[in-house]
Amino acid sequence: MNMILHRFLAAFGQYLILMGKVFSLPERWRMFLKQYVKEMSQLGVDSIGIVLLISFFIGAVICIQIKLNIQSPWMPAFTTGYTTREIMLLEFSSSIMCLILSGKVGSNIASEIGTMRVTQQIDALEIMGINSASFLILPKILGLLTMIPFLVIFSIAFGFIGAYATAIMGVITVDDLTLGLLHDFNQWYVWMSIIKSLFFAFIIASVSSFYGYTVEGGSFDVGKASTNAVVRSSMLILFADIFLTQLLS
């Protein structure tokens, strides 16, 4: 137990030191902006496809499940639409979507930085007098923080489109679904979803970068770091979700 606590504290200390190095002013704004735009594209724009696809199908499946398992003659007709909206807004489009992104984006970040570490590309940056942590990690964190609200909004929208697709299949009528989606709508829930996703985006980018940056060894260790990055950031997202939901509700 002591050993585990010691290892956790040592890793947490290393993480804080790394973040201290990351949050410093860029040496060249021109290069920083170039990296920032590249990361927004690589981490955000390239994730749109998977976010839309998963959100569409989950929206549809939630709608079908609610209709089949909860909707009954003595419940209002808008229940299915209402519940679908609440699930998408409150949990799926922020927390679950970020868990999925921690797999895609987190492993991408950890393996990219980890490979740079083991092939001495990070050493090459350091030798040139560049703050490699800030140069590599800051654009990733800011890039993902910039793109995540858009991904959340796209996810919500495509979840609803998926729900409407079930209306075409005859699971629910369009009028009932629309009524449910609009019933007792609380705008704060959208903001809550976005605020939560910003915290999760920071966790994904910073934790994955930490595991990639601190790799020692070869390709086997890069693979291990990539797995660790996904597992640890997923766990942290789940923990953070509890506190943020409590705090923001």
Partner: peptide
Amino acid sequence: RREMGMIFQSAALFD
């Protein structure tokens, strides 16, 4: 460090 140049064993080019 800005007066240094280094050639690494693996070349360490940005891939």
